[in-house]
Amino acid sequence: MPQPPTSAPQNFDEYCAQKAAPAGSSVYYALRQAPLARQPFLTALFALRRELEETVKDTSDPTVGRTKLAWWQKETAALAAGQPSHPVSHALVKHCVDIEAEAPTLRTLVAGFEMDLDQARYLDFPNLARYIERVGGAFAVAVARATARDTRHAEAWAPALGNALMLAQFVQELGNDARHGRIYLPIDELQRYGVTAAEIVNRKYSPAFSELMRFQTTRAREALQAALAAIPAAERPTQRTLRAQSAMALALLDEIERDNFQVLHQRIALTPIRKLWIAWRAARRR
């Protein structure tokens, strides 16, 4: 199970910042757009997600991964009871207004990552959507509620934004995910475009691959644009972190398309200065 680092209470926030948002990362610039008072809680949320990602992606033995995720499920129950043991959990309890109410969403997030240990491929998009909704949609709800004016209605619009961000992430991380034994593009879509899993794993580019990725990129872009448009007018000023994330994701999709989808052998990324500008501008757009 995860072994929490030895850390004095005042270092919990520092631990979360180093885990979730190293300087120059997209998360770093997205978090800096949030109200100062809410940044520590949001940082802890992103740190939790990063802990879970590392558990499933850096663990070669599924049995060990399940043991670690079971520990995190118990930890979410413990933090809801005010008895955290991990630095991330301490930070969540410290900065969340109502951690007991937030715990079910965190448990959904853990359960979503558990799917990574049971399934590395998805037959079609409806099957993939169940994974996306747990890992992407649930997380976006927690992020949205952290700063929302009306937390009761966040579940009506935030999941679509989290799901769309996941679709964009699948495009960017396709090569890296394949090296970890996972391909999040549905099998029937690969078949439709005449691309095999072996070609992705072996980093083989082709006109068919380009067309497949054009479809994936277009779907992610349209989903992001639709989800952004669906944010209620009253909540647009409160959702600077999610809006900054989405703007950076859209810019990155454009960059990947300009580079003819060369994502199998490299991780295409925006420069830090460009991330800063995009995040700052998106957060202030009405």
Rank of each mutant, 00 (worst) to 15 (best):
P4I: 10
T6P: 11
T6D: 06
A8W: 15
A8K: 15
F12W: 15
D13Q: 15
E14R: 14
A17D: 08
K19P: 00
V27L: 10
V27T: 15
A30Q: 01
Q33T: 11
A34C: 05
L36A: 15
R38M: 09
P40R: 14
T43N: 13
A44Q: 00
E53C: 12
E54K: 15
D58T: 10
D58P: 03
T59M: 02
D61R: 11
P62Y: 05
A70G: 07
W71F: 13
H86I: 02
P87I: 01
P87T: 01
V88R: 09
A91M: 13
K94T: 10
K94L: 14
L109M: 11
E114V: 03
M115Q: 13
L117I: 04
R134P: 02
G136H: 02
A138I: 00
A140G: 02
V141Q: 08
H153K: 08
W157Q: 02
A158G: 02
G162M: 07
N163S: 10
H180R: 14
H180F: 08
P186Y: 15
A197V: 09
E199W: 05
E199P: 09
V201L: 12
Y205V: 10
S206E: 02
A208C: 11
F209L: 13
Q216K: 09
T218L: 11
R219W: 03
A220E: 03
L224V: 11
A226S: 12
I231Y: 01
I231V: 10
A233M: 05
A234V: 12
T238I: 00
L242F: 05
R243G: 01
Q245M: 12
A247N: 04
A249V: 04
A251E: 07
I256R: 07
F261I: 01
I268A: 00
I268H: 03
A269T: 08
P272Y: 05
R274K: 15
A283H: 00
R284W: 08
